[in-house]
Simulated assay, not measured.
Amino acid sequence: MKIAEFGVESWLNEWEKSATYDISQSTIASMTIDELLAATGDDREQFFDQLGQAKMNYGWIEGSPEFKQLVAGLYDNVHDSQVLQTNGATGANHLALYSLIEPGDHVISEYPSYQQLYDIPRSLGAEVDLWHIHEDADWYPDINELKQLIRPNTKMICLNNANNPTGTLLDKAFLQQVVDVAKSVGAYVLVDEVYLPLDDPSAFTSIVDLYDKGIATNSLSKSYSFPGVRIGWTVANDAVSDIFRKYRDYTMICGGVFNDMLAVYILQHRDQVLARNRKLVMTNLAILKEWVANEPRVSLVFPKAVSTSCVKFDIPEGTESFCLRLLKETGVLLVPGDRFDLPGHARLGYCTDETTLRTGLSKLSAFLRQFD
């Protein structure tokens, strides 16, 4: 099996630890456990006593009953049996694709988006058509283009909602159009749903609440600020979940007792975590908007209050070399758009802490002055 290099991950693996001002990430500023406890108001000693007394066996293979119940409650009509714990959303996406896609299948993938969603199907021998997003349409794809790409044998449509790196959210009406196209040929719709619009979470609609053959993947890494816990999940109908169970045994035994306990605690205190993150996102988005308005060499289709954005540069240099020089000369880290097949752009993660964001943007503007 051959697979392309994972563009964004290989860039971050090489450069993120050398950054002084990291404004490249798509996580809302990661929390410590102490910060989580401060947000919930719970007793620190009692919390760690409970963790310390837990036996470190394999635990619950599919995720504890508490975890599955809490995740099921995030959707309209999902039962615990439809929830499977995974190693982050990357593990969830891999499980869904590995379980369902075979050589010769036809897959349609939103593009650019998270690279797993098109390069894993290719590596499995599927024929992948790319459904392009359009900057002049606020990074939406065109539903008529999907209708032209669909085939009687299309096995799956893959989406990233909200999109990485653009932060564009596909609304319920548009998703319903996608579902209607998928239904016409009986295709699955897999949606990576790790980004929640925190200005109005009710504006988000999960694919599993629209379509019986919808598959949702998610994790605690982005909107919940805990990438280090490495817990994600799949949600699908019972028949598909049973398929996943068989393949899951080959890829993952369990998420770990400690990780599951912490994941349960985070989800039990979802309101407090999201309140903290909503304030951070809205404050930083306002800072980003002000910066763009005053930076003549940058334009941006603003994200829907999710934790990733895709700026466009007006510079006479390729963004890969520009971002590397920016890092080495100023300590500011972005992800060059070339890593998403978006030359001339860069992923700007504005949901870091406010000081890092302000300093990073200031240094980026100063660096851009060389082109004036």
Rank of each mutant, 00 (worst) to 15 (best):
Y195R: 08
S10K: 15
T356Q: 13
S225G: 10
L95H: 02
S309R: 00
Y188S: 02
N93C: 11
N93L: 01
A4N: 15
A4T: 12
N144T: 11
F322K: 15
G232S: 04
N161Y: 00
L342H: 03
G52Q: 13
Y265N: 05
G228I: 04
F47Y: 08
Q85P: 03
V71A: 04
A293S: 14
Q85R: 12
N218F: 06
G125I: 10
C158Y: 09
I157E: 00
R245G: 11
G256A: 15
P141K: 14
D22E: 12
S18A: 05
S24D: 00
A173T: 14
P201G: 04
P65F: 01
I28Y: 10
G344N: 00
T251E: 06
A54W: 07
F226L: 09
S26L: 00
L175F: 00
G186S: 08
L130Y: 02
Y265S: 00
D341Q: 12
I207K: 02
G228D: 07
V71Y: 02
Y114L: 13
G125A: 13
Y111F: 07
L334D: 01
V301P: 09
K213S: 05
M1D: 07
P103W: 09
L51H: 05
V301R: 07
G344M: 07
S241G: 11
H345S: 13
V185E: 00
F371A: 09
G360P: 08
A92H: 03
N57E: 15
F48R: 09
S307W: 01
D271N: 13
D76I: 11
Y75S: 02
A29I: 13
G214H: 05
L326R: 10
D260I: 13
T90I: 14
M31I: 10
D372T: 09
Q82E: 11
V178W: 06
L159F: 09
E329R: 10
I315N: 02
V235I: 10
L175N: 09
W131P: 08
D200V: 01
S64C: 05
L300P: 11
V83W: 04
N259H: 15
Q370T: 06
F6D: 14
H94G: 08
G63S: 06
C323G: 10
Y98N: 08
R278Y: 07
A187Y: 01
D180A: 14
D142R: 14
A263K: 05
R347M: 01
T359A: 07
G91C: 05
C254F: 13
K55H: 11
E354S: 09
L146V: 10
D338S: 14
Y224T: 07
Q82A: 08
L280A: 04
L74V: 12
F258C: 06
D171Y: 01
L333F: 11
V178T: 13
I215G: 05
S309T: 08
K17R: 15
M261K: 15
D138H: 14
P336A: 03
T352C: 15
V298F: 01
K55N: 06
I253G: 11
L327K: 12
D34A: 06
F322V: 10
G88Q: 04
E5C: 13
I28G: 06
T355M: 13
